[in-house]
Design a protein around this nucleic acid. Sequence first.
DNA 1: AAGCCTCCCAACCGCGGTGCA
DNA 2: GTGCACCGCGGTTGGGAGGCT
Length: 294
Amino acid sequence: MNSQGQSCVSESQSEEEMDMRRGPWTTEEDLLLVNYISKHGEGRWNSLAQCAGLKRTGKSCRLRWLNYLRPDVRRGNITLEEQLLILELHSRWGNRWSKIAQFLPGRTDNEIKNYWRTRVQKQAKQLKCDVNSKQFKDNMRYVWMPRLIERIQAASSRGSHNSSSSISNSTFNGFKANSNSVESATQTYELGCGQVNTNLGPEQSSNGASSDSVGTQLVSEVDCSFLQGNNKNNHLQANQISYPETLVSPHGYFNHELDFSVTQQDEWFGGDISENVWGMEDIWVFEEQLCRGL
DNA sequence: AAGCCTCCCAACCGCGGTGCA
DNA sequence: GTGCACCGCGGTTGGGAGGCT
């Protein structure tokens, strides 16, 4: 059945009987899929694949559409703002990529998952620690995320003419950035035109095992327009997100002097915004934390 | 120039959830 | 209640691209 309720083929027909194509999609296949969906809509992927004349499984068609052909798929490097959001949301929800992707308009769960594996897990590997360890998570939250915010601030303060950053008048009320200590002042991040509420709730876990329902109650809306250039129409209605954790370690782990090297920050700010969040300095800071037994 | 290595990402796989007959 | 088919998610893999020697 397609979206109009028309049945093209028997859905009991097994995939093996059909000698399905696999591997990379051709332009012709893409066209077939796009044309069919533009006329009939998406859904009922198995029959859609056959009605469209594609020798592909429904799964394959769905994946191709969602991850690549959909018109609102956003391409290009993950921005600093997006990196920050991914780190924050992952610290809350863990590997729930599709949920995280809901708050990054145009980004797919696959893309975010790939980003996490190639960048974040790589860093954990270099540090010889588990990506799920408390040390790694704490360092991410109390060192790397504030660092990201500093970079976003710096990028925005370099002028609105910089097309790579859409943020203007950025204030990050949640942090005292550009200082040697990082502490939380309020529970709101204001990212230029975007604002993320961080109402404190009962969830304080950093293991990703959190209750969605609680989050739903806490925050009714997140404005993610800062992720979409100057297009303020991209106003994501997100009724699930909340940021209950402050960026202050509950145990004060990272409240002592953090020696952020200005020189190296400058190097970062001048670099590609898609580069890794971490530099050698961060690794050094992290290793220092480990040595102190934190 | 050629071979090797690493990185990245598109695509696949397996499984659990859901809806329906 | 049960079985079946579909859907969607998270984990994994394979191959192309680019860098390095």
